[in-house]
Amino acid sequence: MFLGVDGGGTKTAFALLTGDGRLLATALAPSSYYLGQSIDLVEDVLRSGIGAVCGHADVPPEQISHAFVALPGYGEVSSDVETLDAIPGRVLGHQRYGCDNDMVAAWAGSLGAVDGVNVIAGTGSMTYGEHDGRGLRVGGWGELFDDEGSAYWIAIRGLGAFAKMSDGRLPAGPLRERMATHLQLATDLDLVDVVVNRWRGDRARVAALAHVITAAAADGDDACARILREAGRALADLVTATVARLGYAPGDVVPVSWSGGVFTSEEVRAAFREHLLDTPVDLRDPLLPPVLGAALYAARLAGRPLSPEAVDGLQAYATTVLQGGSHE
Rank of each mutant, 00 (worst) to 15 (best):
D147I: 08
D221T: 07
G135D: 02
L92N: 09
Q323P: 00
L170M: 14
S78N: 05
V114T: 15
G98V: 01
G116P: 00
R47L: 04
L183R: 11
G325C: 04
E130V: 15
A231H: 03
R176K: 14
L322D: 14
E309H: 09
M179Y: 03
Y297A: 08
D188H: 11
Q95L: 05
V114M: 08
T279D: 03
Y152F: 15
V268A: 01
R178M: 12
P289Y: 12
P88H: 08
W199F: 09
F263Q: 13
S110I: 09
A25K: 10
V138F: 01
M103V: 15
G89L: 01
G135I: 02
C224M: 06
L183W: 07
F162V: 09
V212M: 08
A316T: 15
R226H: 11
R203I: 11
T181L: 08
P280I: 12
T18G: 02
A108Q: 07
A295G: 02
A318K: 08
H131P: 00
G261K: 09
C224F: 05
C99L: 05
V311N: 08
P305M: 06
L185T: 13
G251P: 00
G158F: 09
A25E: 07
T83V: 14
L191M: 10
A218S: 12
A234M: 04
A108Y: 04
E148P: 00
L238G: 05
L185N: 10
N118R: 01
S31Q: 13
D80L: 09
A27C: 04
S257M: 07
V42L: 09
I227Q: 10
A249K: 10
D102V: 07
A310G: 02
D312P: 00
A299K: 05
E130P: 00
E274S: 13
G9L: 03
L314K: 04
L136N: 04
D252T: 15
L28S: 12
R198D: 14
S79P: 00
G303S: 03
D40N: 13
G260E: 11
L35S: 12
G325W: 04
I213G: 01
Y317A: 14
F14A: 11
A172E: 15
G260F: 01
V256C: 06
W199I: 12
D102P: 00
T127C: 09
R176M: 13
L314D: 04
Y152C: 02
M179N: 07
P171Q: 14
E43P: 00
D115C: 04
E309C: 01
F145M: 14
R200E: 15
A105Q: 09
A52T: 15
V253G: 04
R157T: 07
D100E: 14
L35K: 15
L136R: 12
E328S: 15
L17R: 04
L185R: 10
D188M: 02
G247C: 04
Y74H: 10
R22I: 08
F145Q: 11
P30N: 13
I213V: 15
V45F: 02
Y152W: 13
E309L: 07
C224H: 09
E274T: 15
V53C: 05
T127N: 03
V69R: 06
V5K: 03
T127H: 02
L292H: 04
G261A: 12
R203S: 06
T83F: 01
D282L: 10
V311G: 03
